[in-house]
Amino acid sequence: MAQFYVTDLQQSDTNEKAGLYQFLATFSDKTKARVFYTKNPDWKITSITRLLTVPCPICRKDYFCNCLERFSDTIHNEIVDSGLLPE
């Protein structure tokens, strides 16, 4: 099981009327990802994409990949467990 250790989560965009939220997540290895959530009434991750600042921590490729999508549930659980999501 992969551990990503989300160290920071910053809200970057929101559409409260539709319940859509966008966050920038920073992992312990300095990888950054854009995380999309819905909130109706609970937080649910809809997608995650890696920002191309460092190679992918899973496949080590330096271009667009979908590796983080496979671990979206794990990443969501780490974000929730660390209390980084707003109320």
Rank of each mutant, 00 (worst) to 15 (best):
K17P: 00
L52D: 10
K17G: 12
L51F: 12
I79W: 02
H76Q: 13
R60T: 12
S47T: 14
A25G: 10
C59L: 10
L51M: 09
F64I: 13
Q10R: 12
L85G: 10
V54R: 02
D62Q: 04
I58R: 08
K61N: 09
R34S: 04
F27T: 01
E16P: 02
F27H: 02
T26A: 14
T74P: 03
L51A: 11
Q11K: 13
A25T: 06
L84K: 05
D42C: 05
T74K: 01
I45Q: 05
Q11I: 06
D13R: 09
L85T: 03
C59M: 08
N40W: 09
L20P: 00
R60G: 01
P55Q: 09
K17I: 15
L9H: 13
A18N: 05
F23M: 06
T46L: 11
M1N: 11
N66T: 15
T7C: 11
C67V: 01
L9I: 08
D81P: 03
G19T: 14
D13F: 09
M1Y: 13
R70V: 10
N66K: 07
F4D: 03
I45Y: 09
C59Y: 04
P55Y: 00
R60Y: 15
K17T: 13
L51W: 08
Q22F: 14
F71T: 00
I58M: 07
I75G: 06
T14H: 11
S28A: 14
R50N: 10
L68F: 07
T7H: 06
C67P: 05
Y63G: 03
R34D: 03
I79T: 02
T49L: 00
S72P: 00
R60V: 05
T26P: 08
M1C: 12
K61V: 06
Q3T: 11
K32F: 02
Q3H: 12
F4A: 10
K32N: 13
S28D: 15
A2I: 12
D73P: 02
F64A: 09
F4T: 09
L84Q: 11
A33S: 11
C67F: 03
Y5M: 11
V80E: 07
T46A: 04
V54D: 04
V35E: 03
T49S: 07
T31A: 09
Q22K: 15
R70N: 08
D81K: 04
P86W: 05
T31C: 12
V80Y: 02
D73T: 06
Q10W: 04
Y63F: 14
Q3V: 14
Y37W: 14
V80K: 10
P57C: 09
E78M: 03
P41I: 10
K32H: 10
I45N: 00
I58D: 03
L20H: 10
T38S: 15
D73E: 04
D8K: 15
L68T: 06
Y21Q: 12
S72Y: 05
T49W: 06
V54A: 10
I48R: 01
D62C: 10
Y37N: 02
D81Y: 01
S12C: 13
L24H: 13
Q10V: 15
E16N: 14
H76A: 14
L68K: 04
T74W: 06
F23Q: 12
A33Q: 06
V35F: 05
Y37I: 01
K39E: 07
I58Y: 01
P57N: 07
R34F: 02
I58K: 00
P55T: 08
Q22P: 01
Y21C: 07
K44G: 01
Y37R: 07
E16L: 07
S28E: 14
